[in-house]
Amino acid sequence: MGRYLIRRVLFGVLVLFVISMLTFLIFMKLPAGDPARRLAGRQPTPEILDQIRENYGLNDSFLTQYWRFARGLIPLPGFFLNEEIYYSWANRQAVKGEIAEAFQYTAVLTAGAVVLWLAIGIPIGILSALKRRSIADRAAMTFALVGVSFPTFWLGYLLIFAFYYKLGWAPPTGVEIGDGPIETALKGKYLLAWITLAVTSAAFYTRVVRGNMLETLSEDYIRTARAKGLSDRRVTYKHAFRASVTPVVTMLGLDMAGLLAGAVITEQVFVLPGLGRYAIRALEGQDFPPVMAVTLLAALFIVVANLVVDVIYAALDPRVRYT
C-alpha cells in the first residue's frame, strides 16, 4: 500500500506537470494568444508592444518563462502563487486571495448539492429497485430520465423564473455586498442552485443505485442471507445495500472534484462568485496567471479525487488490494 501510494502520487505530479506545460503552451506560445497584444489594448504601436514584452519578460527563453510560472505552483511558502508573478493582468489583484475567496463559494455550492443529491438519489434508487415495475418505480425512472436530460442552464433559469419571478418564494440571485458564502447560504440564495445541480445528478445516481441494487439482489449471497432466515429488511439494508452503494463512492469522488473545480454554468446562472465564474472571466480576458492557477487547481482536484476514491474503495471492498 505504501509503495502504491508513492507511485500514484508521483504519477499525479507528472500529470500536473504535463498539464501546466500544455496550459503554458496554449496561452503563451500559440499564435492566437500573443499576450503582449492582449495587454496592449487597441491598435498598439510596435514600441508599446516591445515595451510590454520587455516588462513582462516575454522575450526571455521558453524555459525561463515557463519556470517563472511553474515555480509559483510549487506548494511551498514563498513559491506558491507568489504575488510577483501570480497577479491578474486585468485588475492587478493577487490570484491567491481571489482564488481562496472564490473557492469558498464553490465549496458551499458543491457541499449542499452533493448532500441533496445523495439524499434524493440513493433512497429513490433503492426503493425503485425494491418495488421494481411498480408505479413508484416507473415514476422514479421517468424522473431520472427527465432529470438527466435537463440542461443545467435551462433548469436553473426555469427555477429562477418560477420561484423568484412568479412565486416570489426564493430570494433574488447574486451575492450582497459584504456577504461571505455562509451568509449567502443562510439567506437562501444557494437553494435553487443546489436544487439545479442536485436534480440533474440525483437523476443519474438514482439510475445507478437502482441498477446496482437489482444486480446485487439477484446475487447468490443474497439468497444465502435469506436462507439464513434473516428478515427482508436486514437482507436489504445490510447485505444488499453495502454492495450496491460501494460503487457510488467512485462516482461521487469524481463528480465532487469536477464541481469543486468550478460548476461553471450553475455559478454563471445564479451569479455566484465561485471558481467557475473566476475561470470564465480569466479565460475571456486571456488573463494568463489566473488561467494557469485555476487550470492546475482543477487538475489537482481530479488527481487527488482519483487517488482518494481508490483508497476508500479498497477500504470498503475487502477484495480490492493495491500493491
Partner: peptide, 22 residues
C-alpha cells in the same frame, strides 16, 4: 423465517458466489 435457517437450512451450488464478499 424462524424455521428457515434454523430448522431447515440449505447449501447452494456455487460456493464461490454464495458467501457475501464484504
Amino acid at each position: 423465517r424462524t424455521i428457515r435457517g434454523a430448522k431447515i437450512s440449505m447449501i447452494f451450488q456455487d460456493p464461490m458466489t454464495s458467501l457475501h464478499p464484504y
